[in-house]
């Protein structure tokens, strides 16, 4: 019996200064690595150039590529090995999405390719193209943000009660910067969390006495 397949997801951070064509070639190379090792591409999604939350290898921006593929476990090992050999790959992360899958499930699946964003920071692109690309990226980002904002707005209306509580806590946090610091100041007299409640009780008692 043939081995069961697993489904993996790879998020790859590429050098943003690589340029449009080499990036596209590289992504095609990733696909061929999966294919040559008996795997099957399920999905590919180029997020484009994004700011990173921190500096990685002296880079503050990276070109993000999401690849979803299925295959035997060896595919992911080989894929990771190949990624490690490439200098233009700043970082990558593989995640196993599912296991014990039947290879026949993927026999008729075609790769789903999401719109690929042209890298903005290409070395010397034509000005018009670069501007168009940046506009595109900006527009996409805006739509993304709008979507998340909508979600956030929904949550807010639905869970106004919990939000209020959270808001109260946030103001507390803002005052003291850190949760730990907050606790420390609150519990200056005692050290344990339980002590917090005790102080509240004491406050109540005082109120009652008054």
């Amino acid at each position: 019996m043939a081995k069961t397949w697993r489904k993996y997801e790879n998020l790859i951070l590429l050098d943003p200064e690589l340029g449009a064509e080499p990036t596209a070639e590289l992504i095609e190379r990733f696909r061929s690595i999966v294919r040559d090792n008996g795997g099957k591409m399920v999905k590919s999604d180029c997020w484009g150039i994004r700011n990173t939350a921190f500096e990685i290898k002296h880079k503050t921006k990276c070109y993000y590529v999401m690849l979803e593929y299925a295959g035997e476990g060896s595919v992911s090992i080989e894929f990771a090995r190949q990624l490690n050999l490439l200098d233009v790959v700043v970082k990558f992360q593989s995640i196993k999405l599912a296991e014990n899958l039947d290879p026949e499930e993927f026999a008729n699946i075609e790769e789903e390719i999401k719109e690929e964003v042209v890298p903005v920071a290409a070395p010397a692109p034509a000005e018009g193209n670069a501007e168009a690309a940046t506009e595109k990226v900006a527009a996409e980002k805006k739509t993304e943000e709008a979507a998340t904002e909508e979600v956030a707005a929904k949550e807010k209306t639905e869970e106004a009660a919990t939000e209020e509580v959270a808001a109260e806590e946030k103001t507390e946090e803002a005052a003291t910067e850190e949760v730990a610091a907050e606790e420390k100041t609150e519990e200056a007299a005692t050290e344990e969390v339980a002590a917090e409640e005790k102080t509240e009780e004491a406050a109540e008692e005082e109120a009652e006495e008054k």
Binding site: L11, L13, T52, A53, F54, I56, C62, Y64, K91, F92, Q93, I95
Partner: peptide, 11 residues
């Protein structure tokens, strides 16, 4: 933690 690994969130 996964998001931190790929610099989507700060450490």
């Amino acid at each position: 933690k996964r998001a931190r690994n790929v610099a989507l969130l700060p450490f």
